[in-house]
Write a protein that binds this DNA or RNA. Structure first.
Lengths: 305, 305
DNA sequence: AGGAACGATAGTGATTAACTATACAACGCG
DNA sequence: CGCGTTGTATAGTTAATCACTATCGTTCCT
């Protein structure tokens, strides 16, 4: 029993004439004739009474035809689903973002994605890189925004932008007089750091070897966020390092804080998109990338690769 | 897209492993692999993300699988319908009976059929032979009970029983003294006849050539029934001819009426079943025939052909 | 009886679906 | 870093199926 057979069946039920039904199906009369006979043999029931005068459908035949119509209808729905789902910009996209990007990127990203792909709602999760990677591999997420380096089997990445680091200090801090800060001086001040698991914490420690070896005055704030740390800096609890997208927007707005760049070579992080190699909706990823690059993230330099 | 393809599809969705899914479908892994690929090409969507680690279904794939399950479910219903409809003794049987048989046969027939085929309800219509024949050919009836001769293209008949005619007269009638009545004497008395269209009327006239040529005293009672005529005979309005099944049951019960057989050669009618040559439920017809022969119709002789 | 209409059957060719064998890719382990 | 393992894709072959043309057999009507 094939779907074609069922199509022949309902055509014959409608036309009540093998020749006409065959024509309507664009096949020859013997083809339809044989198919119906095959169906009858397979089901072991007589579906039609054939006579020279006309073709009559049996009771059981009528019931089976009605069911066949239902099957064909449902089968047609499959094609419709496929057509509807063919657009990579249709259907929800599960996006993951690390904590140190989300609050600064998402407010810009979301309206841009919505404008570019109105029928692609975003399901967003913020988390640590490791958690995002896990979800991505499991299929709970489709695309994630993370900082490089990021290497996972089965996952491809595409760098999107570089983002320089800034030093954030309380207004009136001794370093305020300097135009740029040297990285090694970070060990000289009480440096406030995110908790373990935040990749940004490691990247900051990378910048300052003395800090990494634990020789500085740094303090780790577990369960904290960049925003919390900023507030703490404002109260004079210490200094910190922020990515430019988090640091640059506010000096105008907050008189309690001062932002300074690093001396060259300016430390930075490289932000990338990552997805499963097998993920088929590359169009959706392009939209995300464009929306990120279209977002006004201060200090950020697009990576054109 | 075939039903087989859909079966492969849902198997793969369940197993998330080409090899296992193939095994479950009793095909080789390449077979299933190719089939899925073909489906994806045809629908122009990616249904699964394949990777070494595991097989993930896409969003659109999951929706299509759900729909495919629906299709397969409905398709399975076809087989169930066929199985249920395979028994010729299941499902209603549309039975037609001529007016001059129905009242005498049906009370016996119905319980017998119900006993022999409990799941075959009878949809019964009484009518003239011509109307029954028309309905039978149209398919509005499946089997009819008529008197022979009955010849129609596409219709086969099977004689069931012969039924002798009787003369019915009021008690105290002059012929009451005779053991048997000669056919030609029917022209001598006021013979009450059914209206045109009743085959029995013609058969009675056939018995008595003088009556047929209109030389007797017969009166036609349009729109009447044998029962009505019998009441009229009881009032002395005339005599009539009845088939034995209508005449014989009652002499004991009705002191106003006398029944006499004809002299040899006894006139009779032959009752037959008729159905379309193409009608597939021959088992149902057998049941009807047996039920008729099992009915206590007085004077009736089975036709064993 | 002859012919027209119609479905069934026979025979053939092309497509498709299945198999086995093998290639290829990704990952994990020593 | 290479090698084995696991898992899917591809190649090539064979068998089954499908659809065609041609023709037959019935039935019914004139």
């Amino acid at each position: 029993m094939t779907l074609t057979d069922l199509r022949y069946l309902v055509a014959l039920a409608r036309e009540r004439h093998f020749g006409h039904a065959a024509e309507r199906c664009n096949v020859s009369q013997p083809t339809l004739s044989v198919a119906i006979k095959k169906l009858e043999d397979e089901l072991a029931v007589t579906l039609f009474e054939r006579s020279a005068a006309d073709v009559k459908i049996t009771d059981i035949g009528a019931r089976i035809v009605a069911q066949a119509e239902k099957v064909l209808l449902e089968a047609g729905q499959i094609k419709e689903l496929a057509t509807a789902g063919r657009d990579p910009l249709s259907g929800p996209l599960k996006l993951g973002v690390i904590y140190t990007i989300g609050p600064y990127l998402l407010p810009h990203l979301i309206p841009r994605v919505h404008a570019a792909a109105p029928s692609m709602p975003l399901l967003i999760q913020e988390n640590y890189t490791a958690r995002l990677a896990e979800s991505l591999k499991r299929g709970d997420l489709d695309v994630i925004v993370v900082a490089l380096p990021f290497e996972e089997p089965g996952i491809v990445t595409q760098a999107v932008y570089d983002e320089p680091f800034r030093v954030l200090m309380p207004a009136g801090h001794a370093w305020e007089k300097d135009e740029a800060i040297s990285a090694k001086r970070l060990a000289e001040a009480p440096l406030l750091l995110l908790g373990a698991g935040n990749c940004f914490r490691d990247q900051v420690l990378e910048v300052c070897p003395l800090c990494r070896s634990g020789e500085g005055l740094q303090r780790t704030l577990e369960g904290s966020s960049l925003e919390t740390i900023r507030h703490m800096v404002a109260t004079g609890a210490g200094i910190t390092v922020l990515p430019s997208s988090a640091a640059d927007p506010l000096p105008d707005g907050n008189p309690l804080l001062t932002v300074r760049p690093f001396e060259a070579p300016e430390p930075f992080r490289r932000i990338a998109l990552a997805w499963r190699v097998t993920y088929p909706r590359s169009g959706a990823i392009d939209v995300i990338r464009s929306a990120i690059l279209g977002s006004p993230l201060p200090g950020v330099r697009p990576v054109t690769r």
